[in-house]
Design a binder for these strands. Sequence first.
DNA 1: CTTAAAGTTAAACAAACGTTTGATTAGGAT
DNA 2: ATCCTAATCAAACGTTTGTTTAACTTTAAG
Lengths: 214, 214
Amino acid sequence: MKNKSDNKEPKMDSRERILQAAVFLFARHGFDATGMRELAAHAGVNISMVGYFFGSKKGVLKEILDSFLSGYLAIAREELAGAGDLHTRLERFIVSTVGYFDVQRDSLIIAISELPHDDPEIVEHKAGWARQMVGIVNREVCQPHAAETGKYIPPTSLSPMLTVLMASRYLFAPVMEKVEPGSSETVSREEYAKMIVGLVLQGITGSESRVTKS
Amino acid sequence: MKNKSDNKEPKMDSRERILQAAVFLFARHGFDATGMRELAAHAGVNISMVGYFFGSKKGVLKEILDSFLSGYLAIAREELAGAGDLHTRLERFIVSTVGYFDVQRDSLIIAISELPHDDPEIVEHKAGWARQMVGIVNREVCQPHAAETGKYIPPTSLSPMLTVLMASRYLFAPVMEKVEPGSSETVSREEYAKMIVGLVLQGITGSESRVTKS
DNA sequence: CTTAAAGTTAAACAAACGTTTGATTAGGAT
DNA sequence: ATCCTAATCAAACGTTTGTTTAACTTTAAG
């Protein structure tokens, strides 16, 4: 009566267990404050398995960042390009991204928290993804927008602005939950996305989804 | 010819030297990745002086956060309250805050990077400041805005959004500098502030300072 | 059955960690 | 002169850090 490979709960891939534990812990204690022993214990594996699968602790971080950022970039490619005018495409992009951030909130927190730190190995990784994102935003948003309005917003400014705007809710959640318990659930993910769509497209006067002139 | 207390360069307060070194290092390597020895060496003091003046390493962080957040809150009190309609007050607030973030960019990076981490001692500190900020934003922005438009944006959503929007440039600077060297200087602080004012007040169509209908 | 690879383990490594100690100095007040 | 206190220092405290080693077990194919 011993299941060999049919059950998933008790005998999941050790590699995957480590990854999940790392996402959980890095987001809560930070990368540097999370020890290998704590990580191994939380994943239910021996400490040396981290080195075996990922080479080093930093290897785990790189994998988390790559996985999260590639997903974010894929959404940008899919939603910002393609058919529709600028407003429509921006709205699609925001709704999709907020959904993605919502599901991947721990990875999002890790990516943004580690953003400003200057470990050259990590900075280079992030710069690679950022470079592609800037290219897409420039081609699909900044230039069409400049053609419409005559005003050019550099993508090196707009990309960070859009990203952190959509991320703000998840970055501040731990603090805001202390400020006003339950405040995370008062606004649903869909309402939050609409709020950002309104803000980006029409400013604070349009922060609800009422779009009268399309 | 020996100056006693007139000169400031060679014999500055050790306490202040530690504080300045900590702001510099915490912003670049992160709080947990910065060691006491590195901090003491960078400040040019003995390692035990950190404990002597601040109690612990975490004591230094708390002082940095308190100093930065109290300044931010003071700006909010000064610019969001007072005379003028909502748009005018928001514009004043954004211009002032961007100036403040620009000068205090290292402290800003520290505050946001440590935001999501769950050290109870630190979370409580941040929650105290956030609670006051939410109160001000609610009274001076959200409620007047609801009276005008009929749409209520919760301050627990709006405060984080405004904050990270103005901070985005400094959070991403290390990465964006790698993506496009010199991109930090292509947009001046004043232009950056105008960009955000336009975005917040009129959306992406108004991201330059051209305000035709006041 | 044998063999080779992949997975897993406990143990050990030097290095670095944050903090504390006790001695020493200097300056002003008593 | 004596005392007090703030400031500074070198040295050591006991832990914990990330990583590595070598032996052991399991898995799967020849």
